[in-house]
């Protein structure tokens, strides 16, 4: 069966609106009857990615593909890119500004959490051009 596609636009610097896309996905997955644990993993991972786009990447686009056996989330931005992915994957490593940290974000757990909650994670990034993050959770 064809996957169900949901598309979202994430605005830059909109901290109060961040989480709306992952919230909508969570609601949709609950109506579809996916197991609670799968829903939780998708929504936590997607929320982290959404916040990353707000903090670092001047916003971007998220596409969610829902199939009965897998949920795929693709986050595309035209932000600064990630110069060193290995470093970025380390818990606690963050390049967030003091202002962002003051808001309670930028603890350096974004990418490590995404990795922890997903079954597949691929990061394509070019410094100065942007990042595409694809993740999936198997059902």
């Amino acid at each position: 069966m064809e996957p169900m596609i949901l598309e979202y636009t994430v605005s830059a610097d909109d901290f109060s609106g961040a989480g709306e896309a992952s919230g909508d996905v969570k609601k949709t997955l609950k109506s579809l009857g996916f197991p609670p644990e799968v829903i939780r993993r998708v929504s936590v991972a997607m929320y982290e990615a959404e916040i990353n786009m707000v903090i670092h990447a001047r916003g971007g686009k998220i596409t969610v593909e829902i199939s009965p056996d897998e949920i795929r989330v693709c986050c595309e931005d035209v932000g600064p890119g990630i110069p060193d992915i290995d470093l970025a994957m380390q818990e606690g490593w963050s390049t967030a500004s003091d202002k962002v940290r003051g808001l309670g974000f930028g603890a350096g757990m974004g990418l490590p959490n995404i990795k922890k909650y997903t079954d597949y994670l691929d990061i394509k990034t070019v410094v100065g051009q942007g990042t595409t993050l694809t993740m999936s959770v198997a059902v």
Partner: peptide, 20 residues
């Protein structure tokens, strides 16, 4: 126990068809 009151169908595929 869980009460699946939000679920559109007990089968995920059928629920997806309904959601679309």
């Amino acid at each position: 126990r869980y009460n699946p009151a939000l679920q559109l169908d007990s089968d995920v595929k059928q629920a997806m068809i309904k959601m679309m």
